[in-house]
Amino acid sequence: MTALVITIFISIILLVVGIIVFFKLFYTQVPQNFALIVNDQKVYFSNVVTFPTDKKQLMEILPVQIKTAYLDSNGLFCKEKLLLDIVISYNLCVNFSPESVLMAAKRVGVADVANASAVSKALTPIVTNIVRKLVEQLPLEMLEKDQGKVRKAIIAQLANQLDGYNLEYMNIDKVELTSLDKLEQTNPKLFEQQQEARHMWDVEQKKVLERRLKLIIEQQQDLSRKIKQMIESYQAIIRKKIKFFLNRELLE
């Protein structure tokens, strides 16, 4: 009886040890805000059983904030060919999907997907290319006064272009004409081009203002004519009514 008890006790111990060893060797815990990449092919977001020979990499998935400035000679041209200083800030985060995780790992590296410097180096060229093309199509007035639409347009065009990352937030921090004084010192050729572009823009702005003023005057004149016609119409109606009452009194 004692031998049987000892045997059962040893079996239980071995079973417990076996379970511990199994979990230690085969069971991998995936912390919150992490993804587990197995053999560079499969992605898991929760605890999973793997083989000891598997290649396992934990990727931390957290948003990163990036600020990009396009200043002076590196500014962006708008529709009127004017050079602008533009600063944008945005948050990027890897999408919680296996495809996105693998794309981000390939593009940036598993250890750097939440590193702002590494992400900026990898993805800023993509963002810059799209922002530059979009700004070239937009007038200065819209870029300055309707930045909500500009942000929406940028976000829409960046969708599915960021190798597994999602653009969670974007803000346009600055939009203003590049300083001609700085250009004169750093890029004389561009300075001359911008002087001419500013002159042409000023001329066009004056024309636009003149057309708007002319339209306002025409609208005011049209409104005055309508008011005059309305007054004359009411006066005619009143005269008819007075004449009608006078004639009725005479008949009585």
Rank of each mutant, 00 (worst) to 15 (best):
141 E>F: 12
219 Q>G: 06
29 Q>G: 02
9 F>T: 15
248 R>F: 03
245 F>P: 03
55 K>N: 13
84 L>H: 05
127 V>W: 03
142 M>K: 13
112 D>K: 15
193 Q>A: 09
229 Q>R: 12
14 L>I: 14
194 Q>D: 00
39 N>V: 02
100 S>E: 05
231 I>L: 06
129 N>K: 15
166 N>Q: 10
204 E>K: 15
237 I>T: 12
215 L>D: 13
94 V>A: 05
209 L>F: 04
63 P>N: 04
14 L>A: 12
65 Q>A: 12
83 L>P: 09
130 I>K: 11
167 L>I: 08
124 T>M: 10
35 A>Q: 07
206 K>G: 01
159 A>P: 00
199 H>C: 08
202 D>Y: 07
218 E>K: 15
1 M>P: 03
57 Q>E: 03
210 E>I: 05
81 K>E: 06
3 A>Y: 11
104 A>F: 00
6 I>S: 10
224 S>Y: 00
189 K>H: 11
25 L>T: 09
191 F>S: 14
40 D>S: 13
119 V>G: 07
122 A>T: 13
17 V>K: 09
223 L>H: 05
202 D>K: 15
123 L>Q: 06
47 N>Y: 07
147 Q>S: 07
225 R>H: 05
81 K>W: 07
17 V>A: 15
170 M>G: 08
171 N>Y: 04
230 M>T: 11
74 N>S: 10
159 A>M: 09
57 Q>L: 03
173 D>G: 15
197 A>E: 00
86 I>Q: 11
95 N>G: 08
61 I>M: 03
19 I>Y: 15
213 L>R: 15
228 K>Q: 03
168 E>P: 06
138 L>Y: 07
130 I>H: 07
174 K>H: 14
89 S>E: 14
21 V>P: 04
140 L>R: 08
252 E>I: 06
55 K>I: 08
121 K>A: 15
76 L>G: 10
207 K>F: 06
45 F>A: 11
105 A>K: 14
113 V>G: 02
236 A>M: 12
45 F>S: 12
123 L>I: 04
92 L>Y: 04
48 V>E: 06
43 V>P: 00
239 R>S: 08
169 Y>H: 13
173 D>V: 09
7 T>N: 10
73 S>Y: 01
160 N>L: 05
121 K>S: 10
179 S>I: 01
17 V>G: 01
20 I>A: 12
195 Q>W: 02
191 F>G: 11
186 T>E: 12
234 Y>S: 14
139 P>S: 09
221 Q>E: 12
219 Q>A: 15
68 T>W: 02
157 Q>M: 13
189 K>C: 03
88 I>C: 00
165 Y>T: 04
134 L>F: 13
243 K>V: 01
64 V>L: 09
14 L>F: 05
17 V>P: 05
234 Y>G: 03
39 N>Q: 06
126 I>C: 05
200 M>G: 09
131 V>K: 07
149 K>L: 10
161 Q>I: 02
119 V>F: 07
75 G>Q: 01
231 I>N: 04
14 L>H: 00
185 Q>S: 14
90 Y>Q: 08
104 A>T: 08
231 I>G: 02
155 I>M: 11
56 K>H: 10
34 F>I: 04
138 L>H: 03
75 G>E: 00
14 L>Q: 06
149 K>H: 11
178 T>L: 02
79 K>D: 04
123 L>P: 06
205 Q>W: 07
243 K>I: 04
30 V>N: 07
105 A>V: 01
78 C>W: 00
